[in-house]
Design a protein around this nucleic acid. Structure first.
Lengths: 354, 354
DNA sequence: GCCGGATGCGAAAACGATGTCGCAGGAGGG
DNA sequence: CCCTCCTGCGACATCGTTTTCGCATCCGGC
């Protein structure tokens, strides 16, 4: 049994409230230095630490923040998690993790959203939430916001709920610009889509803008959407090349690394060589992209920083230091791993014939 | 402000204790069905959920389990985490995550161990711990065990503290057997080593046994150790080929996927072709191994199950249903992805000459 | 020598829930 | 009709901490 404040007080020969004052070192409270020393000595002897439940109940705060992510199999979210955790440690908070995908698909009578809401929020297990990607429905998020429940979204905008966003649009533009510079005219995109999520839409928009800027082919058949998984990525690339069989893209922008892994598989099945027949560029980058076959040229994103800023922002909000959304300003970079080359000759020949 | 039990009681026109009884449905307590219905109706109207801190303080239980892992960048631990989380959800518990690597290297005056101990255990934030790999020192683990703090280790044995172990030895034997069957005589190993960890030692032992069983070369220079990171794996393979320059291995067993990624890099630098010049086999397997260049033949391990069994075992222990260590019995399998072939000819020629 | 103010600390009331104890009131048996 | 027993529920203590309030004690000043 862990020692309680009363045990410390008894050992030091003082009242519990005095012990509490001594240990917390509250500057507004007066305490005799000698008493204070005695209490600290006693606390040290017993290895006392204030009980989390007792204190939490009294001060109405748990010192725990919740992180909700879809699935840590997505490398991106591991980085985000690292960032949030770093922020939590900085500010002496604990981290409660919820991976939405781990919830049984048909969770009895209630959807996952409700389960999370009830367990984490209604029961008061966390002081606030960092919400990664589209893991909770807008409806629920808005409800929480109305009740002023501390919350920070990662790379997702819902109304004016605090969020930390990166420069995805810039990254998309850089990717397309890089391909255009190599001479590509028919650039396709495999776009990650999570029902209704705005980050996908933002990348879409940036893609189309970039296509226009560089006067590339604006063929709607060049864009296919895919859920965020290898399997879906593989199917998506088959779809793409089926529907553009008469005039396939010479380069592909893929807006998710997990999808990119599936795309590589699909491309092998289609016997398309990278970068000879097809150039590939991915966003966001991850160290794993240098181990794939072939390694993938990618545009970096600051996922760790995003998580860290989200965690810090959430803690500021919890602590009542009003804070607005954060926009990360560090620019993305292109990491060249050789999956982008000039467009293939056949394409140039066909262009000459056409 | 979330509604409290008192709010529900007031709305239903009963005393708080009656409301508590009605909501918990305690079978040992008698309550009039009509009263019960009124209370439930009121609770429903208010969206009441029992406050976690209040209940926890009273029943001396948090309903939260702690998971301590080194780093989720190691794919293996993502799988373990999934398993632990699945177990937590099954039993309606929350999961507090601690990634040891996220702690500032030099955390002020105290080592990471102490920080974890104080925050999670001494403050009573968790009912028990799942300890992944060698994240806490044996000394601390033993201290906790002495105080009967609920704890389960994953794939690590310390005294007779409950643990969930897989069949690593079998997996090693299978790997070496597979290589021997292909005709390899000089088989090397890049062994993961985390200071003093027993899982590494177990794989070492199994390796040497298998070498003896199959009458392969028992050259100590064929074994090099590496910390669990890509970087160290790369250095290790350079070391291995430097010290066996006169008679290099024709096959390599790598006992960690993260290390394997570094090995692939090192091998490319050494201009060694897989599997023509060198066969590779890895343990444990992970879906990422099919995307590497080249894809890696691997021996499977049940990391998810390991996490899940660990979580379940911990919960049984917390609930006072005494439980012993669990040994997973499902056998490993070899997933052939083409990185293992017959030994190269030069080796055979040299053997003839020698 | 008395009074005002400062100083140090104890008592007690929260926070929200659970669980024990015991008191009303109704039912049933003699 | 009275006594007993059971049912249903309210009062209260408790978990460990913080924080407010107020009571002593001591000091200095007049």
């Amino acid at each position: 049994m862990a020692p309680s404040l009363k045990d410390v007080a008894r050992l030091a020969g003082v009242n519990a409230s005095t012990a509490s004052r001594a240990i917390r070192g509250d500057p507004t409270q007066r305490i005799h230095p000698a008493t204070r020393a005695r209490v600290l000595e006693a606390a040290d002897r017993l290895g006392y630490r204030a009980n989390y439940l007792g204190r939490g109940l009294r001060v109405r705060r748990t010192g725990t923040i919740g992180l909700v992510v879809p699935n840590l199999d997505f490398f991106t979210f591991v980085d985000v998690t690292h960032g949030v955790q770093a922020a939590a440690i900085e500010h002496d908070r604990s981290l409660l993790l919820v991976e939405v995908d781990q919830f049984p698909a048909a969770a009895g009578d209630r959807p996952t959203d409700e389960l999370i809401y009830q367990r984490l929020v209604a029961e008061g297990r966390v002081d606030g939430l960092v919400i990664g990607s589209r893991t909770l429905e807008d409806r629920l998020v808005r409800q929480l916001a109305e009740r002023h429940f501390p919350m920070v979204m990662v790379n997702r905008r819902v109304d004016d709920i605090p969020t930390v966003v990166g420069r995805d649009e810039d990254a998309c533009r850089m990717a397309i610009g890089h391909l255009a510079l190599q001479g590509h005219r028919r650039v396709g995109m495999i776009a990650v889509v999570v029902a209704g999520e705005d980050v996908g839409a933002r990348r879409d928009r940036a893609f189309h803008e970039a296509i226009a800027t560089h006067h590339l082919d604006a063929d709607p058949r060049l864009v296919v959407h895919s859920a965020m998984s290898e399997h879906e990525g593989r199917k998506a690339v088959h779809r793409l090349f089926a529907q553009t069989a008469d005039d396939p893209p010479t380069a592909l922008f893929i807006s998710s690394l997990s999808i990119a892994l599936g795309v590589l598989e699909g491309i092998r099945e289609l016997r398309i060589a990278v970068p000879r027949d097809l150039s590939l560029i991915t966003f966001p980058d991850h160290r794993i992209a240098q181990h794939t076959s072939p390694p993938l040229t990618a545009v970096t994103a600051r996922m760790f920083q995003m998580g860290q800023e989200a965690g810090r922002l959430l803690i500021r909000i919890i602590d009542g230091e009003a804070s607005d959304s954060v926009e990360l300003t560090e620019p993305s970079e292109i990491v060249d791993r050789g999956s982008v080359g000039p467009p293939p000759l056949p394409r140039l020949m066909r262009a000459g014939v056409g």
